[in-house]
């Protein structure tokens, strides 16, 4: 472990703020890019499920909303 204390790791003799901000933003974007498709997939699956349920109970016409 190069840094002897957590405090040193945070400050990184002056450059700490830039490094950590960069890593934080990257973490933000990467997690967004990883999570979004999963959420979208679940939402689509739910959509199909509700549409199916509605069709079975015969409310919507054969077309049904897209």
């Amino acid at each position: 472990m190069y840094f002897d204390s957590v405090q040193a790791a945070l400050s990184m003799d002056g450059h700490g703020s830039f490094v950590w901000v960069a890593y934080f933003v990257t973490l933000l974007i990467i997690s967004a890019v990883l999570l979004l498709p999963g959420l979208r997939r679940r939402r689509l699956l739910r959509q199909v499920a509700t549409e199916l349920a509605r069709q079975e109970s015969g409310y919507a016409t054969r077309e049904g909303p897209r």
């Binding site: 190069y2 990184m12 003799d13 450059h15 890593y23 990257t26």
Partner: peptide
Amino acid sequence: LLFTSPDFRQGNSYRIIYI
């Protein structure tokens, strides 16, 4: 971030290279 030694010229800011 934590284990490699800083670059002699730029100090720690070079660690951004890893992303």
